[in-house]
């Protein structure tokens, strides 16, 4: 059974239909790279999975929970579906550790001490043990993004959504973030990434999804799809960015 199941999802912003019937199945342990031009609907699709955006028709279930159901408990859904953003979105008034501890203490009601232990563990995982008490403004972009990843991991998500998480970084900082994501993939974390890092998508991804005009235009095993794109649109896209 798939962990995330997307069925014929349609979504419009006013008269502009950005998702025109998207279907996708994601199994536990999959590392899905969603690529495509800006405006192809990839970020919107990702944001529909954890309910940050609503959709007009179709269905999405994540970990068995229907995202847009009338009685859906979005809080329950989001406890299992983490998200990391392009702009990091760390809370500037809290230290790295406090950023990580906030949701476990507020949402899961764990004690401060337990949350701090979890924070130490996940910050070590992203290589930032020594920055626990630093404020976001004292960290580089790459470090901030790694704290943001740790913050999501502290909730022990079953799926992690990554929305262009290296796009706001200076080129020399991209790799330290990608290495963390790669390690998560190796540990079996289910990942759905909207990305422009083609090499990463090919080497780490288990599934590639090329979105075009609000639809899944082509999908398959990354190495095979990159080696022999079937549609002219993907051929052209790969030619431009690769």
């Amino acid at each position: 059974m798939s962990l995330v199941s997307i069925r014929d999802v349609r979504k419009s912003f006013g008269a502009n239909e950005v998702l025109k019937g998207v279907s996708l199945d994601i199994a536990k342990g999959d590392v899905v790279a969603i690529i495509g031009r800006s405006g192809s609907g990839k970020s919107t699709l990702l944001r529909c999975i954890n309910g940050l955006e609503t959709y007009q028709s179709g269905s999405i279930t994540a970990d068995g929970i229907e995202v847009a159901g009338a009685n859906t408990n979005l809080r329950e859904l989001r406890r299992h579906v983490g998200m990391v953003f392009q702009q990091f979105n760390l809370f500037p008034h809290l230290t790295a550790a406090e950023n990580v501890m906030l949701a476990p203490t507020v949402v899961n009601k764990v004690s401060k001490a337990e949350a701090r232990a979890t924070a130490a563990e996940v910050l070590a995982k992203v290589g930032l043990s020594e920055k626990m008490d630093a404020y976001p403004s004292e960290l580089s972009g790459g470090q901030q993004q790694r704290v943001a990843i740790a913050r999501s991991l502290a909730m022990r998500p079953k799926v992690l959504l990554c929305d262009e998480i290296t796009s706001a970084l200076d080129p020399e900082l991209v790799n330290e973030v990608l290495r963390v994501v790669e390690q998560l993939a190796r540990e079996g974390m289910t990942l759905i990434l909207v990305t422009h890092e083609m090499r990463f998508a090919r080497d780490v991804g288990t599934k590639l999804v090329f979105m075009h005009h609000g639809k899944v235009h082509e999908e398959g095993v990354p190495k095979e799809v990159f080696a022999a794109p079937r549609t002219p649109e993907l051929q052209q896209f790969v030619g431009q960015v690769g």
């Binding site: 954890n50 940050l52 979005l74 809080r75 329950e76 989001r78 406890r79 579906v81 983490g82 998200m83 953003f85 702009q87 979105n89 760390l90 809370f91 906030l102 949701a103 507020v106 949402v107 943001a148 913050r151 999501s152 909730m155």
Partner: peptide, 21 residues
């Protein structure tokens, strides 16, 4: 920034928890 609110919501916090914290 709206992103801070979305980050809080994505961490399973309610609207009011996001507002307060």
């Amino acid at each position: 920034p709206k992103g801070h609110i979305e980050a809080g919501l994505s961490l399973a916090m309610t609207k009011w928890e996001v507002l307060r914290r």
